[in-house]
Design a protein around this nucleic acid. Structure first.
Lengths: 208, 208
DNA sequence: ATTTAGTTTAACAATATTGTTAATCCTGTG
DNA sequence: CACAGGATTAACAATATTGTTAAACTAAAT
């Protein structure tokens, strides 16, 4: 039919990505992946040997993506509050594109020791790097008396909490029937983004 | 041996609770539950007929618990900032007792339509109730000029984000090797609790 | 001591799930 | 055209997982 040869591997990867993100490792069956990709079940093993193999490929890519979000978002060079605002918004917008990503990665990390260990080696070095830059930026502002002192890790965790949880809430609140339309959905995100920037910045600024 | 008769059902429930919370519905096998409970595999079906049955019982109880946390935490009658502080801390302390609870419930809600629909009927009425009280309290403070205006749902979501995510982070950060001891773990939570109260309150107070 | 009801056990059945294989198809190349 | 190689298929194999059953056991009541 319209099955152009040569794209089978890609079809499998796409179907697997969708299903794994939606249902997790244990909830996804290789048969479902095959059906969703529209290919014969055996091809999954032909191209990837095992389910675990296929999953790892996707998981590692997604974990790298999630981390990349943070790096990209908080590495620009702007005045402090600008940097903060842009960083939060950039991070938020990244998440908008794949709302299931953070929960997916967090879950699989928590549920599997091997994945945890793998991730640790990748995440920690980069995390430390971001924290170092942030710590310096914070110190400067504290000197100027514009913000209260805060640990960089706390600030980062605050941002991650608010941004990530917005999408967890999104999935729970809008995962049900059709009575809440796309429009409401978009509005919810807009408001949430604004709220997060406001809260982080208000929470830092010094009172009179 | 030491198996006192009559507690088998309880043994199964306890083992199931532990495993389901740890590995989720799909990650938990009835055989594992039996082994962990130290009972014959068939007893699980004798007492609960199906895995789904056993799971529902635990899930619904846990979901109710999670919701109860919110109700208990934000229903006391104190001055506004006190209420806020105590509410956040109470909620945080609840979560300390079962750190896996929120992620467990959120996940199973997201992954299964039936659970979603079930939960909706239970959660929404109570959620609305809390929001109504909060809206009134906020309006009063805004009139007094002590806080900036904010939607009750935003405030509640901010608190939930910060508190819940603290325990997600906890699981990820401390789920690995032994190099981070209990002591560090407790310190992390202490700091996080304080940080959350500060951020929420600072973020609300009016600047000069 | 017998009966009864609930409990437990081992063995089995049924299905789901992952993985394998040999045969077939297809496509480009000599 | 023949054929070499990867791509695909259907059928099968192996195991995991859930669920069932009939028989054995236990303790309390008669």
């Amino acid at each position: 039919m319209e099955q152009k040869t040569g794209n089978t591997e890609q079809l499998i990867l796409e179907a697997a990505e969708k299903l794994f993100m939606e249902k997790g490792y244990n909830g996804t069956k290789t048969l479902d992946i095959a059906k969703n990709a529209g290919v014969n079940h055996a091809l999954i093993h032909y191209y990837f040997r095992t389910k675990e193999n296929l999953f790892s490929q996707i998981f590692e890519q997604k974990a790298a993506q999630l981390l990349g979000f943070f790096v990209d978002a908080f590495n620009k060079d702007y005045p402090f509050f600008e940097k903060l605002k842009i960083g939060i918004e950039t991070h938020f917008d990244f998440l908008s594109q794949t709302p299931e990503l953070p929960l997916f990665v967090l879950n699989e990390i928590i549920k599997d020791k091997n994945r945890r260990n793998y991730i640790y080696k990748k995440i920690f070095p980069i995390g430390e790097e971001i924290l170092k830059r942030m710590t310096k930026a914070i110190a400067e502002e504290v000197c100027k008396g514009t913000i209260r002192p805060i640990k960089a890790s706390d600030l980062l965790l605050n941002i991650a909490s608010l941004n990530v949880f917005a999408f967890v809430a999104l999935q729970v609140l809008f995962a049900t029937d059709e009575d809440r339309q796309k429009e409401e959905y978009v509005k919810f995100l807009e408001e949430r983004k604004k709220n997060n920037v406001e809260l982080i910045i208000n929470g830092l600024k010094i009172k009179n």
